[in-house]
């Protein structure tokens, strides 16, 4: 069956092109399915050819010739310069549009990446100041850091932040 698939295109083209493909003959004598396919394609091609042959001979009416002639004369009366100008204008418009698009794109490329606000980086838990120096070390904004330092400087000896902060400073 796979072999037949390979033959199908050749069968169809040989019928449509009315060419003789000698290698097909051998296959067609052996394969009934391909013979049926060939007959089907032949009938299809013949139907279109018969229809084409049966088309009536038509004399173009005078009005068609008159219409074409007047349209052509009208087009011919248009100076070539005008046609060239129209082409040039179309080209200029296209170039302007391309420039506009490029400028917009370039502007988009050069615009600084918007900085994400620190508050959005911090989770709800971290925005709340905890009495732990370790937590303050993770502060992402300058305000939070400042608050942490203020608290450390004013913390008493028994304050957790003082103990943690001192231990940290000693370890440095």
């Amino acid at each position: 069956m796979n072999a037949c698939r390979k033959f199908r295109k050749r069968i169809a083209l040989s019928r449509a092109d009315e060419s003789n493909d000698a290698t097909l003959v051998g296959h067609l004598t052996e394969c009934a399915a391909c013979r049926a396919y060939a007959a089907e394609i032949s009938a299809l091609c013949d139907a279109h050819k018969t229809r084409a042959a049966a088309l009536p001979e038509i004399d173009a009416p005078a009005r068609l010739r008159q219409k074409v002639a007047s349209a052509i004369n009208e087009a011919s009366s248009t100076p070539w310069l005008y046609a060239s100008l129209r082409k040039a204008l179309a080209g200029a418009a296209a170039a302007a549009l391309a420039l506009l698009i490029f400028t917009f794109w370039n502007k988009q490329q050069q615009a600084p990446t918007p900085v994400e606000p620190a508050s959005s980086v911090l989770t709800d838990n971290t925005t709340e100041i905890k009495p732990s120096y370790a937590a303050y070390r993770n502060a992402f904004s300058a305000d939070e850091l400042e608050m942490a330092l203020d608290r450390y400087s004013s913390a008493g000896a028994d304050d957790e932040i003082y103990r943690v902060g001192t231990a940290f400073l000693n370890s440095q």
Partner: peptide
Amino acid sequence: QGDAEAFCDLCRVYDGRLLRQAMA
């Protein structure tokens, strides 16, 4: 070469056949 009259003459050669195909 831009001869409109020649094109009209050419049309007379082909317009019948063309119309026949258009009809199809």
